[in-house]
Nucleic acid binder design. Structure first.
Lengths: 116, 116
DNA sequence: GGCTGAGATTGACAGCGGTCGATGTTTCGA
DNA sequence: TCGAAACATCGACCGCTGTCAATCTCAGCC
């Protein structure tokens, strides 16, 4: 459940300005740090990468468990973190849950860091 | 001390390709995650922002302790993390230590995340 | 030489976060 | 209706990390 303490990255980019352009406020630093924390894990980076490279740019949990070498609960946990942060979208179809990259989410955080 | 476990971000960008362009390897995911972890802290984001906005684009520790509201050892710790990750450069002049943004470091990590 | 101030390092503590086994929930098919 | 499969949630463990007080190092100055 996304809450005030875990705004999706697209919202963060809407309220925050670039890090080096002007001095970031303590509140915005907190928000951006939360979004970056969601990315700052090798398993989650690989999840994003695998989902983006999958057929139809979407993947279900069963496709993700084996290449990561992690248990199913752990993969589900990481996926939840990425969904809450706004990087992934979840769609349930039948028994399966399909995850897809949220368009523009990575570009949003990327543009907050770029200096040019 | 930067080691094999903490490559500067500029080196990471030299060896890694974009996250969504092709499937990232486990090793590169580990490297990129370490670089992102160094950024994923509100105090460190504010440090980078303040240094970038400072007169001459550099600042000493004494200028950074007060606006952050953190103790001097804590600020020194965060600065060390950022230097080891390659985001900041340290130059000692007399009794003071001046920190400056490493050119291109934020753009490097930014370009690894951007999808366009 | 001895003092002072800037900053780094150390040690300790508390809270966070990644991991997994066990279990719960939901959907589909027989 | 019952069983199986996919996925989420829970509870617990443990290593990592942010924090500060205390201490150490070093440069400048009397």
């Amino acid at each position: 459940m996304p809450s005030a303490t875990m705004l999706p990255i697209t919202d963060v980019s809407a309220c925050c300005t670039n890090v080096t352009r002007e001095t970031i406020s303590a509140e915005n630093a907190e928000l951006l740090a939360r979004s970056l924390k969601a990315l700052a894990d090798p398993a989650r980076l690989r999840l994003i990468s695998i989902v983006a490279a999958s057929e139809g740019a979407e993947a279900c949990v069963c496709d993700l468990t084996e290449p990561l070498g992690l248990s199913q609960p752990t993969v589900s946990h990481h996926l939840k973190v990425l969904v809450d942060a706004g990087y992934l979208e979840r769609e349930k179809r039948g028994t399966w849950a399909y995850y897809r990259l949220t368009p523009g989410s990575l570009d949003a955080v990327s543009s907050l860091l770029a200096t040019v």
